[in-house]
Design a binder for these strands. Structure first.
Lengths: 350, 350
DNA sequence: TGCGGGCTGAAAAACGTTTTACCCGCCTTC
DNA sequence: GAAGGCGGGTAAAACGTTTTTCAGCCCGCA
């Protein structure tokens, strides 16, 4: 008697029906196991009538193939890893969404690895992925040091790096063009009439910050009468944004904050000093976090196509997995766009 | 020669070393396959010296067991599903974080299922989970209709519902106590001196909204001189919050918004009318989204222990999976807390 | 000396697929 | 009418584990 019943505190549980095997289907359809497998995997090989019969049996028995067994035979699974520092960060969450969409579309399943800012745990997930024979992984690495990454790759797990470049010979990567982002942000300020521009930046050692500043410089060079300054915040938080607003001696007429937390704090700090945005100072943020529309005046900001990043990452990964030899590594860079809102005067002024 | 080399556009790839099998380990250690398996799974059965030898071989060969093969034999995998409407929503993201943490701690892997508000896709993930023989799933269902959920359960996938209750005999669930949340929010307003309180709510058909309002009513009943009103917004967004602020005829002295988007919009709208928070009106939000600290004045709000929700969900799931017969379904309710900030006057006033 | 029994360890049978051979008629083509 | 090909199907061998069963060995005890 195969049908056990489990009793819980509340009574008889649902019968844990043992799922049908391919054998059962074969028996029901009156064909051999291999025929069933064929109609499932290479339908063109089998007569339409028998195929029909088999499919009926499949439906009748609720048969679903056992991917573990299949993977055992074929050597590949259909799960891909997504390792992120923190799902809760909206940037990474959006990557996750894009990745999940793409994985779903291609019939893969995405295993969520929350490395949570600790390298040990990231490493733990890496080994978990090789244990599971994941077909590959999209990773936003914690550190720039690539040795752990290449080790993973050597263990047979292809990688796509997100939001961090990788030496091209080692694999694909996707990222947003932060230089362009900085450029369009400041170009916009210039178009809005600002000439004395201050960049509120994070630590220069952060690649994104350096790039965004570099973009800002490029933009300013297009106008000889324009000036660019920079102030760097210890951390890119609302609190530091406020502090910077309070500490300003002379006001610029345009400010570019390299992330939206800084921008939000800055706006609040300016408001407390009685400085009006955008009348007195125009402000552009970066990132278009959800918060960008919640500061006192809604925030013009640089919007990044983060979902596309995630989606592209798993698609490039799958290309590598499926094409193998023909695959050429690619580092794909997405262009950010400006989201116009109230913290700048969109019509060119002075 | 087993070592193929794949050539990409960039040159010779890393050798796709075929992972060591248990056989290889056995050979290297000079023991049988079963002994290796034993030292890995039931170390007490095997002599310390041989175990040592085996472990050395394991280390030397970088051997990791193939979970597909193991699962084939044992009948269970070690992956659990997490199906959410949208990872990008910070509430769900926090559930995901808690769930990921717990899954990691217990050695399970979490497959991320982004149902994205479409029931077909949710269903698609459900069948994917039964295909994969997932050991169970934590789900935030799209609809209150339980038939699809019970079908999943009948297919042998135990479920834990998050943020939505479930008939206890059908399984576990975790949620936050929204009645308590509404109560503490309004009690706080009362303590701060507010007497004429207006609830800015969402559609009453949403369980959370109804509950939070009910909690508010309970709170108000504790003071006979207090009055409670309600206005419902079509959608719980910043825009509607602003609109409501603008449409108010007479101002209450305390307002409770049933989510932080509404609260943020409300505060902005009030500011535009020249109404000061908290001097003229005190405001309490709900949810403690990241945004709660970004409205003009920081927002007192009800904070939910969402990560705990996620963590508890997978732990209850694993209990059911592992204990089986002894497991008693449980619906666990978490208490929200108040996060005091500037939009209320914390010292009791008038 | 013989025997029961505790320890170790091994052989072998599953688990549910996929896939490689191969077989059997039937049709086509000389 | 025979040879060859082909469509349609099957048997059986993997894939890498876990686990049951069993065999050997050494010990103590009678």
């Amino acid at each position: 008697m195969p049908g056990r019943t489990a009793v819980t505190a509340r009574g008889v549980d649902a019968i844990p029906v043992r799922p049908a095997r391919i054998q059962d289907v074969a028996a029901a359809a009156g064909v051999s196991v291999s025929t069933v497998s064929n109609v499932l995997n290479r339908p063109e090989r089998v007569n339409a009538a028998t195929a029909e019969r088999v499919r009926d049996a499949v439906a009748a028995l609720d048969y679903v193939p056992h991917p573990g067994a299949a993977g055992l035979r074929t050597g590949h699974t259909s799960s891909i890893g997504l390792v992120l520092p923190d799902v809760t960060n909206s940037f990474y969450a959006r990557i996750a969404r894009g990745a999940a969409d793409a994985a779903y579309d291609h019939g893969y399943s995405l295993v969520l690895c929350h490395s949570g800012d600790t390298p040990e745990r990231e490493q733990g997930y890496f080994t978990m992925l090789v244990e599971q024979r994941a077909v590959g992984a999209v990773v936003v690495p914690l550190s720039a040091d690539p040795t752990r990454l290449t080790r993973l790759r050597e263990r047979g797990i292809p990688l796509v790096l997100a939001d961090r470049a990788m030496p091209a010979q080692d694999g694909c990567s996707v990222s947003v063009d932060d230089i362009a982002g900085g450029r369009i942000a400041v170009l916009h300020l210039l178009e809005c009439g600002a000439r004395d521009i201050l960049v509120v930046n994070g630590e220069r050692s952060i690649r994104q910050c350096a790039d965004r500043y570099q973009g800002a410089r490029q933009a300013v060079r297009t106008r000889r009468e324009a000036r660019l300054g920079q102030v760097v915040a210890e951390e890119m938080t609302v609190a530091y944004g406020m502090e910077i607003a309070q500490g300003l001696d002379e006001l610029p007429d345009g400010m570019f904050c390299t992330n939206d937390f800084l921008a939000a704090g800055l706006c609040r700090g300016l408001a407390e000093r009685g400085v009006k945005v955008p009348e007195d100072v125009q402000v552009v943020g970066y990132g278009d976090l959800d918060i960008a529309s919640f500061v006192g005046t809604t925030l013009t900001t640089v919007r990044q196509p983060v979902e596309d990043l995630g989606r592209a990452a798993v698609e490039m990964l799958l290309d590598e997995v499926e094409a193998r030899a023909e695959h050429a590594h690619e580092t794909r860079v997405f262009a950010p766009r400006l989201a116009l809102r109230d913290s700048t005067r969109s019509l060119p002024g002075g």
